[in-house]
């Protein structure tokens, strides 16, 4: 997110494409890999989204815009979009708020910071599929520790456990796992951002007699804007694609209360409705792409 522009000021001269002074040769391996692994699946999926897999001839047959017109009238897809947005919005705001608060706490100075930092990384090194299992046990309606705490505190009723009942708390149950795993990621990056803040503006504010809240709101937060942008961008991309927790913990249920677009796409994939899988995939890609694009524009994220 650095807007260093010194290279722009140098005189531009024409260099041969393959010269070490031109970017191409430096970036070639990365670009080749990324092209192979991103453009190929993209083209493949766009192509597939206009086809249907025919199990008898074991091949794709052309169906034109059928998958796409299905998509726009598919109530299940609409529900999945709604679930995904709700999920992402809650996860993102909680992770950011908690992440920022804890990062500031660590930054303000605590004893044994290294140890706490390391321990906070633990959730990140646990594969999401395993995290889902851990939380399934912790949120078990009869024997789960988290359920037990929530029952005892009267926060949820026994008839409506986190996982089970009519499922009104199911999304919250899955979110707990996501928040637990990814808040540390936010803490880490935001802590790094706080550590790197220039000291001058803060001192100036102190001289002006600003209190802690004012310093946070008017000085630190604006300075952290770019860091926040990074975190938000990466979290949005991952949240919109959330799959593992849903797969392990709820299979999208009860009903369709936790069915995200990725999980829906997986269902269509397992049941060989591959044309539609590709359609959903391309649609998610477009949504993520647009969100990220608008985001970089609105918040002036410039590489």
């Amino acid at each position: 997110m650095q807007a260093t522009r010194s290279h722009e000021t140098r005189t531009r001269r024409r260099v041969p494409l393959w010269s070490p002074e031109a970017p191409l040769i430096w970036m070639a391996p990365a670009i080749i890999l990324l092209l192979l692994y991103s453009i190929y699946p993209l083209i493949y999926n766009i192509w597939t989204s206009f086809h249907k897999f025919d199990p008898l001839v074991r091949d794709f047959v052309w169906v034109g815009g059928e998958n796409w017109s299905t998509l726009f009238t598919d109530l299940r897809a609409l529900n999945a979009v709604r679930v995904t947005f709700t999920y992402s919005a809650i996860a993102l705001s909680v992770q950011l708020t908690l992440g920022l608060a804890i990062a500031m706490l660590l930054d303000a100075g605590v004893y044994g910071r290294g140890l706490w930092q390391s321990l906070l990384i633990l959730p990140m090194v646990t594969p999401p599929a395993v995290v889902g299992l851990i939380f399934r046990l912790l949120e078990h309606s009869e024997y789960g520790v988290i359920s037990w705490v929530l029952y005892s505190a009267g926060l949820i009723g026994r008839q409506e456990p986190l996982l089970g009942g009519t499922g009104q708390n199911a999304l919250f149950g899955v979110l707990l796992a996501d928040i637990w795993q990814w808040t540390p990621f936010c803490i880490l990056i935001l802590l790094a951002g706080l550590k790197a803040l220039p000291t001058d503006p803060l001192e100036a504010a102190e001289v002006d007699g600003a209190n802690a809240w004012q310093k946070f709101w008017h000085v630190k937060l604006p300075l952290l804007r770019n860091v926040l942008a990074v975190v938000i961008l990466f979290r949005i991309i991952d949240l919109f694609r959330v799959f593992d927790y849903i797969y392990v913990m709820t299979s999208g249920g009860p009903g369709q209360r936790t069915e995200t677009i990725s999980y829906y796409a997986y269902q269509t994939y397992v049941f060989i409705n591959w044309g539609y899988t590709a359609t959903l995939g391309v649609a998610i890609l477009v949504v993520i792409w647009l969100t990220a694009f608008l985001y970089t524009r609105i918040f002036h994220v410039e590489w």
Binding site: H140, S141, E142, P254
Partner: peptide, 8 residues
């Protein structure tokens, strides 16, 4: 039934 059945 136990309320958890809907996720078992």
């Amino acid at each position: 039934m136990p309320p958890g059945v809907t996720t078992w």
